[in-house]
Write a protein that binds this DNA or RNA. Structure first.
Lengths: 118, 118
DNA sequence: TCGTGGTTACAAAAAGGTGCGTAATTTACT
DNA sequence: AGTAAATTACGCACCTTTTTGTAACCACGA
């Protein structure tokens, strides 16, 4: 029973993008149209339950579009929506930022206890 | 036993920023130096255990700086690092993006089943 | 005794994995 | 010809794992 609408848009985004899968799925969908089984192959450690749940969430968020084709061994295609495409560079920016942090100055893991005095 | 180092920086960022608290804490720390109890007041629904865990995580990530002052009723101050400050506009960009998605065209919740045929 | 900023142990809740069932048709085997 | 098996994208139930909450405890000095 989480409040679906929070006061802050950033919280709402994080509610959707949190966890290991959303960014990964977006990464693979960025490569083009994917089917359910393609996405499972792309990321073999996700379970089908998780994949359906995460895809549904991204669909509800308007990031992913689901297209179901009538038929026999039922076919479903997943794509990024235009909104989803616009999200990609923002995630890339986060990744780039993180690389500068990692490389950044004095990631002092030497002193387990930090003490300062003013 | 999660691999702490993934291949992709975006995954690594998400590992840190996932969940409700990191963005919220950054939001409040953006306002300036905060003490532990300030942050609890800012966000009364976080438990003190979660607050310590999340602060520790952000500190380890180099986003937050913890300054401990010797003394009596022990005082600790938390600030965003320069890296943390640089993160803020990126999160804002995500928030802005999300607002355009919400407001965006045809969030069709009318048709529960979508069918297409090519 | 209270307030500060914690830690630890235990309990509850949430997230996630596994395996089975389903549809409707093609292909494979006998 | 008749039967069986495979395919695809799930839903559902059950169970395990992970995360989070709760409460108690710690030190120190006012």
């Amino acid at each position: 029973m989480k409040d679906l609408v929070s006061r802050c848009p950033i919280e709402e985004v994080m509610q959707i993008m949190s966890g290991r899968w959303p960014t990964l799925l977006i990464y693979y969908l960025k490569q083009g149209t994917k089917r359910f089984s393609d996405l499972r192959r792309d990321n073999p450690t996700i379970s089908h339950k998780m994949l359906t749940l995460e895809l549904r969430k991204l669909e509800d968020a308007g990031i992913v579009e689901r297209t179901e084709f009538e038929g026999y061994p039922l076919r479903v295609e997943y794509d990024l929506t235009s909104a989803g495409l616009k999200l990609v560079p923002l995630l890339d920016a986060l990744g780039n930022w993180w690389e500068t942090v990692e490389a950044g100055p004095a990631h002092a893991s030497t002193s387990p206890v930090k003490l300062s005095q003013k």
